[in-house]
Structures are given as C-alpha cells and as structure tokens.
Design a protein around this nucleic acid. Structure first.
Lengths: 185, 185
DNA sequence: ACCTGAACACCGTTCAAGT
DNA sequence: ACCTGAACACCGTTCAAGT
C-alpha cells in the first residue's frame, strides 16, 4: 500500500479537472456533462459528487486551472500580464466563457486581478493600480469572450471569420489605449 | 376577422420574447427553459418551435430586445452611449450574460458597436472611432457581466457584496480612462 | 475512501397529427 | 397558421448500498 497500482487507481480532484479540460478542448462546453466526464474516467456520474459538491464548483476548479496556466515573470509589465491572461483564455475551447461565468463564484479566483494590479503598481500609486486592474480585467475577459464566440460562429459557417490576427492587433491596441489613459508607461 | 379575439389569441415572436423576459427577470436564466416559457404562454414546448428554430435563436432575439432598450439621443456622447448600454444590460437579471453569449450569433446584433462608433466618430477619425468601439464594447460587456455575477453571488450570501455604487463609479472611471486613452473629448 | 445502482425530476428537439 | 401528443435521447443530483 501507499502507492496506488493500476487496478486500484482512483480519481482525485486534479485528475478530474484534467479530464474536464480534455473534454472542453475536444468537444466544447456544451458537451461537458457530468455523465460524459464520468465516462471519460470510467466511472459513473454519481462518483463525481464525492469529489465536488456540484457541477458549478467543478467548473470553478476548471476555471482556476485555465487561469493558472497564465505564467508570467515576476517583473512582467501590465501589457505582458494582460497578454498572458488572454492567451490562457484562448488556449482552450470556450475558455473565456468558463472563466467569465465562474469569476465571481470561484473562491480562489482573484489571482488575475491581483497580478494585473501588482504589475500596474510598479509605475502607479497603489490606488490607481487597483482601479486600473478593475478596467483591464473586464476588457480582457470581454474581448476574449467575443473573439472566441466569433471563431466558433465562423467554424459553423454562420459568419465570415476575418481571422485571429485582426483580433490580436485589436487586443494589443486596446491594452495600449487603456494603459495610456491610466498614465502608465 | 382581422382582429384576433380573446379565445383565438395566438402567439407571435414579440410576445414570446416578452414572456421570456418576464421569466428572466423573475427566475433567472437557469429557469428559462422552453417548457417553462411555454407554460407561461399556456402552450406546449413544441409550439415554440413553430416560431423559433431553436432555443439559441430565441435567446438571440431576447438579447436583441434587451439591447434595443438602450435608448439614447442622436447626438449622445460616447460616455452616454456606454452608460445607456450598461444600464440596459443591468436592467434585467442575467442580462449581460444573455447578450454576451449571443453577441456573435445574434444576426441583428451589431447595433451596440455601431452606436458607439457613431458617437466616437464625432470627435475622432472614422478609423480610430471603429477601433475605439472595439475597445469600449468588450469593456462594457465584461464589466456588466462581472457586476451582475457579484450581485447574484452576494444574494446567495457567497460573498460580501460591497454594493452597486462602487461598481457604478468603477464603470464611469473605466469609460473615462478609455476615452482619455483614445484622445476623445 | 471511493464508487455503483437506481431513481427523481427534469431538459431540448422532432414530427405526425389535429384545427 | 398555429398548436397538441407522444416520443427520443438526454440532463444534474441524491442516496442507500457496496468494497
């Protein structure tokens, strides 16, 4: 005992979140059901409720996982932090929607705002930095959300789909405009 | 014939959307199901599919309805347009989520961005105005979305809930910062 | 500690048929 | 033109019981 062998391998929260991320990437949020997730883990849906109180808290853990991947140097500029966060959201199908929809619920989830505020605080008074983060964060979430929806609509052929390059330039411009407005270098 | 009398009154798209809005306000997006909406109209769920191809297009029509209520003078400033749009989103429970999640799908739904661009174009070259609207819109949607989630989480007692006044000041500050960054008066 | 089995109260959607 | 009835293939969640 101690080490789990292959036949007694059981699930933990991290592993379940990882499986959820796989389903998100391959099939999207609409197909991320408790039953499907359970099947991915060779288990019944009811087993998941031993690990998570509800689907909502599972999704909050998933949002955590997505956002945590936004790695950034300790001395990163505000623009770099915003870019990294945006990239983390766009790295997974429906990533922005998952994070946006659990932002208020996810208890460990003030990290993105804090990282933005930290970066801003290096050139701005703490107060201005906090308010600046409160502008940057909704912009990043809103922008990523709209971009991702457009991509998806384009895949379905609903809409032209003028490419991700335009969206990237757009995003960088937005961050620059907000930083200029804040008087941050 | 011509006029419908009480006993033969049947539903049209506008009336269905109005009923959907009532359910949204009183019970929230989670309870806005086709069956419940049908019950509100004294009809079976399948009847709704004569009027709308799917729940998604019904929600797109609902988003349209919510956004259309953002009335604004023809010569309104960009800040006034942004405020009016924000107010329209917050006027209905889960309004921001409904609009954000159907923004790309809703076919008649470029109106908010166009109104923002128009207002900006009075003090900015058309090109800058268009790019400015592409910054303001995600900020408005993202901010309203986060505010509404926090309100809801506060109602459930999950989180302190520091009031809507702070959120309003926050929003106005954000709009001012973005406009300053754009060099718009 | 972690999972199964079975059930409860639902979903969105389709489609023949009614009026 | 607009709706019913019935069905199909699902949902999230609970809970006793197993190991």
């Amino acid at each position: 005992m101690g080490m789990a062998d292959a036949t007694t391998a059981r699930n933990d929260r991290a592993g379940i979140v990882e499986a959820a991320l796989r389903i998100l990437d391959t099939h999207g949020l609409g197909d991320l059901t408790m039953r499907r997730l359970a099947a991915e883990l060779d288990v019944r849906a009811s087993a998941l409720y031993w690990h998570f109180d509800s689907k909502q808290v599972l999704l909050a853990a998933l949002a955590d996982r997505i956002v945590r991947a936004a790695e950034v140097a300790d001395d990163a500029s505000p623009a770099e932090v915003a870019l990294a966060l945006r990239d983390a959201l766009l790295a997974h199908r429906d990533g922005a929607e998952v994070v946006l929809s659990t932002q208020a619920l996810a208890l460990g989830e003030d990290a993105p705002r804090r990282r933005l505020a930290e970066a801003l605080a290096r050139t701005l008074p703490q107060d201005d930095a906090d308010r600046g983060a409160a502008i940057l964060l909704p912009f990043v979430l809103g922008h990523a959300s709209l971009v991702q929806q457009r991509l998806q609509a384009a895949e379905l052929g609903v809409v032209p789909g003028d490419g991700a390059d335009a969206a990237d330039a757009d995003f960088r411009h937005g961050v620059a405009v907000i930083l200029a407005g804040l008087g941050a270098g």
